[in-house]
Design a protein around this nucleic acid. Sequence first.
RNA 1: GCGGGCGUGGCGGAAUUGGCAGACGCGCCAGAUUUAGGAUCUGGUGGGCAUCCGUGCAGGUUCAAGUCCUGUCGCCCGUACCA
Length: 800
Amino acid sequence: MKYDFVTTEKKWQEKWKQAGIFHAADHSDKPKFYGLVEFPYPSGAGMHVGHIKAYAGLEVISRKRRMQGYNVLFPIGFDAFGLPTENYAIKTGIHPRQVTDKNIARFSEQLGRVGFSFDWDRVVDTTEEKYYKWTQWIFLKMFENGLVFRDTALVNYCPHCKVVLSNEDSQGGKCDICDTEIVQKSKDVWYLRITKYADKLLEELDGLDYLPNVKMQQVNWIGRSTGAFVNFAVKGIDEKLRIYTTRPDTLFGVTFMVMAPEHPMLEKYRSCIKNADALDAYRDECAKKTEFERTQMNKNKTGVRVEGLCAINPVSGKEIPIYISDYVMMGYGTGAIMAVPAHDDRDYAFAKKFGIDIVEVIRGGDIEKEAYAGDGEMVNSEFLNGIKEKKIAIEKMVQVLEEKGVGEAGVQYKMKDWAFNRQRYWGEPIPIVHCPQCGMVPVPYSELPLKLPEMENFAPGEGGESPLAKVESFVNCSCPKCGGAAKRETDTMPQWAGSSWYFLRYIDPLNDACLADPEKLKYWLPVDWYNGGMEHVTRHLIYSRFWHRFLYDIGVVPTKEPYAKRTAQGLILGPDGQKMSKSRGNVVDPLNVVEEFGADTLRVYILFMGDYGAAAPWSESSMRGCKRFLDRVAGLAEKAQGNGVTKALEASFHKTIKKVTSDIEEMKFNTAIAAMMELINEIDKVGSITADEVKTLVAILCPFAPHLCEEIWESLGGEGFCSLAQWPAYDEAKTISDTVEIAVQLCGKLKAVVAMPAGASREEMAALAKADARVAAALEGKTIKKEIVVPGKIVNFVAV
RNA sequence: GCGGGCGUGGCGGAAUUGGCAGACGCGCCAGAUUUAGGAUCUGGUGGGCAUCCGUGCAGGUUCAAGUCCUGUCGCCCGUACCA
């Protein structure tokens, strides 16, 4: 039976809103559940089916939790600062505030039409002054605690967006926003000292219930390595050449040194260098290379010898030539390395090309052919000779280096400090004043929020300076410390600032005295379950864990970690199996689907498509199948007669409740829905059903298709809202049918399927199996050598 | 290179973790209904007429392998000269 989803969905969305049934109570005797989804960027394009999938998972879980008697916080908000809105504003001249408000209104309307059970009283918008006041507050706290610093450095810069990007924002050497090849540019940069939290972020990961690949990606991104710093004396100058190595045990195998082309010592000791011009030429050449070219250079190493400087091996006293090469980066370690060609691929390639000696110090490989990175006995290494274990050799060498005062154990991270300023308008102003007398002075807490000034032209300056620099009334101010004339910082914070703590604000969105009431934080934290995209694992997830941990360290939040559990949804691909994109023209608009097939169908289909964590292509005909399923459920309500239990369906019901209950917890929504489809196939076969049973069915289906279920629930005289009905219980004993189908095999090959009583013993099962005509025929003339009987599962005769 | 994941019908995908491979849905076929198309309903549907053969490929362990082991091929994601 087709039901009128347009009327039904509208009716229940209004009823839910009027009754306010999805509001979270701040304190309650019920157990609490905080389910979080990544809040959207309210783009002009409106909602995408990907949003629906991202939210539908925790939507089902949150709805189930409410029915299970939890006090549920399932909030939504908008991460609205950022470039797309600003670029739109530049193009159209419409203020980003207006653009943002319009987009948020549209998103809210669209989310409402899908019937998501968000608590709409707790909506946060990162661009509102009462919100970013606290973003700025956290920044000042970090400043106060020495986690903010300023440096002139080579940074990732996007020539198209005219903006500095963090490492996280320029993964793969491309701008995250416009995909333009990024270039290195020397600029004044504000950094957040996230590296100080590297170890803390790494350690706490262990105790968290994150998907294994999420954990792993974070571990790799933080990229902790242990090794040693070694200071090599350089003949003719006073300064030591400091390097970092993970293999101090190979120190006797060093046959050359390599510095990054931009290494500062080259400039400092230019007068000692005989071929400075050649080094300059090489450096300039490297600067021109794109990221792509650099990675292509993997095998074919380039470089130039530094004439006039020569390093001394601190343990052997040998003289070692120094080179510059772009396979050594200024941004990692010390910007210089000791090269051990016998035991490192890159050094090996370089040594071969430049005809440098290759000295074996670890046995086990063939250094004539390639570098050997494995374990083995130490040779040619004086006091290390004979040691077979890498760990012991490293310890011994580090000990010697420390005794001699030429080196020490050290740790390095791939993760860099977070470049935190953007030369853009639509972001949180950085609340710092530059005073000629006092230097960098924080804006007093009492003056927060430091508001974005009104302006007409939002375009960034050609030299890459912030648009705010043009607003004199904003720039010119008095120093909060000395009262003298001073200038405000004109850069704004990056997109990721507001989202680094939004989950805290949901807990107390209107508080004006603090970012959230400590008692409420204590009640709601940590987030019990956070679902989002894999693309945020090395950005938002790292950043927000960092901010949260900082807030914990200064006593603002009660938990070390913000999220107890983290899962991720897979992409929805276009019908052609390709990633949805405007240029491919394969984008499915969820609102069209809602209008044509209804929100319930959309929700059920998106969760039925396949494994929630995997990518799956959109298929409209497959979706029609889900519509048919819902229509059939609607039909059952009309057929229902009487109350109580239909004996023939009892086991099926208990089994289905059990499966749906546990599958939802494992995000196996596809099989949960399949189980309910099986159940209605079973009901059709039996041909009769009671009203009580339909009510049970719609209760477990309600988290998926809430509008239809409410309608049926009401029509059958259900009490209150189906959305708040008690989650059906199952009786384990009743999930077992009286008879079970047992496969009977002969030598592992299926011969028959025999119905047996559920509790049959091994002997009874073997006897019943032999009694089956087909089995008997197969056994004819054979001797049974072995009988394998697994109760409830299988009988297998080994016979010849 | 390195790290992780995945290969099952025409398609999306199931499989209680070693126990009837292909649940459920799509598509397809046949029938019903319909002026027709669409929609809906009913039945069938891995391959082969059959003894049988089937989870990328080749071996192995086992009474029993999609699942475990060894080797191999292919695809996807992340990362990228990290010293």
